[in-house]
Write a protein that binds this DNA or RNA. Structure first.
Length: 256
DNA sequence: ATGGCAGCTTCGAGCTGA
């Protein structure tokens, strides 16, 4: 069973690229972020063989969960403690025996701004919910754009990113705390603590061609799911295509 | 340190992203 996460950077404008990737890699579950629309191409995805639940908003943010040959059962939209006017950054569904949370964490730049404070607050809500999910003992995957590079290994030039909201020690500490609590970083677990692997490359300055990338899209697995982890990867060949998102899809393969 | 690119939007310059 393959669970993937893909920040599409505009689900309607990117639809052809999304359909191409689905047909090429056939993930069982695909978590999408940055839909950037309050309309969702459910019909086209259905014709491609994917059922979907989505939580969109106009212009910005937006998350969705796709399931190949199945209809995801939505279990929640938004995190506990959010107001009704909150940005569309979290959706959760039961899919093929796994509880899947799809997230799009705030960017938070610049450091010290109200947006940065909102990112910290969002992570507090997310961590509380993750703790509750872990306590259930169920198979859970939390997949999405975390907007955190967890360590220096996840940044092509760490010194250039020290002042960025995606690379603050207090945010890296929050990510580390999730791992300490029992969540397994599927991609890092498979690649090991020595190999560089990125999921995002800026559109600027030929970043992809230079492999000047960041690892900010992650799939965290609860212990019972982590026990089934077989492999993981990043579909960087799709980042190389014309008209690609600035993120590449990342995935884990689970036994069964 | 700056600026570079791309997608969105009351249609086009400004906001956001990372």
């Amino acid at each position: 069973m393959r669970i993937a996460t893909f920040n599409v950077n505009g689900v309607n404008g990117r639809l052809e690229r999304l359909l191409d990737w689905l047909a090429d890699t056939k993930p069982d579950v695909a978590c999408l972020q940055e839909l950037k629309s309050d309309s969702f191409p459910a019909r086209a995805l259905e014709q491609a063989g994917y059922g979907a639940v989505w939580h969109g908003q106009k212009s910005w943010n937006g998350v969705a969960i796709l399931a190949r040959g199945a209809a995801p059962i939505e279990t929640r939209r938004g995190l506990p403690g959010e107001g009704s006017g909150a940005q569309a950054r979290y959706i959760e569904a039961a899919v093929k025996g796994v509880l899947v949370g799809c997230l799009y964490a705030p960017n938070g730049n610049p450091v010290g701004s109200a947006r940065y404070a909102a990112k910290l607050a969002w992570y507090d809500r997310f961590a509380a919910h993750a703790e509750a999910l872990l306590a259930t003992g169920q198979p859970v995957a939390l997949a999405g754009d975390y907007n955190i590079m967890p360590t220096d290994l996840d940044v092509y030039a760490p010194e250039r990113w020290r002042g960025d909201a995606l690379f603050q020690p207090e945010l890296k500490a929050r990510y580390a705390a999730l791992r300490d609590a029992g969540w397994v970083d599927g991609i890092r677990d498979v690649f090991g603590e020595g190999e560089r692997v990125y999921t995002f490359w800026k559109y600027w300055r030929n970043a992809f061609q230079r492999d000047a990338g960041l690892r900010i899209d992650h799939v965290l697995l609860s212990p019972v799911l982590a026990a089934r982890l077989e492999s993981a990867g990043v579909d960087s060949h799709h980042r190389a295509k014309a008209g690609a998102s600035d993120h590449a899809p990342a995935w884990v393969e689970l036994e069964g």
